[in-house]
């Protein structure tokens, strides 16, 4: 599919368009935000402690209120964007690539390799991922890179299982059999015929996982073992702000809103992409749309 037609398609769907703009905005913030706000995000001003939002007499970084140390919430959000998105994107991609590959292998393999993979995912799945992450982070410490690896590992099974389930269904289809009869190798089969069909589903899961990972990271902060200050993520901001919910709701509300909107946008865009990227579905949509 050509880029220009994709863009046109995107603009025709208002919701997806808005979602795309939000994501671009957030990515933009992640790229330049920390430099833009600079010292405002880390400096201390106890007089402005928990200053309420929409007080425009202060600098713009305080427009969404100030946190418990008097730092502008907006400045903190800008600073946190890079770590937050970095962790989420990296761990989703990592688990999607590894999990998807293993899942396709497991689906195609009729030997012991597939079994080993599935038992491996059973091991991971039979223990709640949050607790596993907690134990591992106790050992490794809450550095962002460790979080990426831990979150990626704990999310592997869902990709493996989904990919495998899809492959089991796809591999019986006529054209796969045809390709097989025509002598296509396993690798060729996996890459050319199966992966493209599995990918959309993985994208759906991945987009939902994007939200999941941000939330898991925030839950780890709630339990005290996520990213550690002075590093900051939106999830950590929500976790830190929760003790002020009764007196200063803005501390956890705004970062929570950023998590929600970003997750929502990723999901909307992914499901739009699923439809846009799949001609048969698009046709189906077209038909039902007029039915």
């Amino acid at each position: 599919m050509r880029n220009s037609s994709l863009l046109a398609l995107l603009r025709s769907d208002r919701v997806a368009f808005v979602a795309a703009i939000w994501l671009m905005l957030v990515v933009g913030i992640a790229l330049v935000g920390p430099e833009v706000v600079g010292k405002a995000a880390t400096g201390l001003d106890l007089r402005a402690r928990n200053a309420p939002p929409f007080d425009f007499s202060r600098g713009w970084v305080h427009w969404l209120g100030s946190d418990a140390l008097g730092r502008g919430i907006l400045a903190r959000i800008f600073l946190a964007a890079r770590t937050t998105l970095g962790i989420a994107v990296a761990s989703v991609l990592l688990s999607m690539v590894i999990g998807g590959t293993l899942g396709i292998i497991a689906g195609l393999s009729r030997g012991s390799l597939g079994k080993v993979i599935m038992r491996g995912t059973d091991v991971i799945m039979s223990f709640p991922s949050l607790l596993m992450a907690l134990i591992v982070l106790y050992v490794l410490g809450g550095a962002p890179a460790n979080l990426v690896v831990v979150l990626a590992i704990t999310r592997l099974p869902v990709y493996v299982r989904t990919a495998r389930a899809e492959v089991l269904e796809i591999r019986e289809r006529a054209f796969i059999n045809a390709a097989r009869v025509m002598g296509a190798g396993q690798v060729h089969l996996a890459l050319r015929h199966i992966a493209p069909l599995v990918l959309p589903t993985l994208f759906i899961i991945g987009s939902l996982d994007f939200a999941y990972v941000m939330l898991a990271e925030s839950a780890l902060s709630f339990l005290g073992m996520g990213v550690q200050p002075p590093s900051i993520t939106w999830g950590l901001m929500v976790a830190e702000g929760r003790s002020y919910l009764n007196s200063a709701w803005w501390l956890s509300f705004w970062p929570g809103l950023f998590i929600m909107l970003t997750a929502l946008s990723a999901n909307l865009l992914a499901s739009w992409f699923r439809i846009a990227g799949d001609p048969t579905l698009r046709a189906a949509q077209g038909n039902t749309g007029h039915a």
Binding site: L44, L69, S243
Partner: peptide
């Protein structure tokens, strides 16, 4: 963590004071 209420914030404040 949670050595006393707001313990983490107090440390961030001290950090800022010492760096100043």
């Amino acid at each position: 963590h949670n050595l006393y209420p707001n313990s983490q914030e107090s440390l961030q404040a001290l950090e800022a004071m010492y760096e100043a």
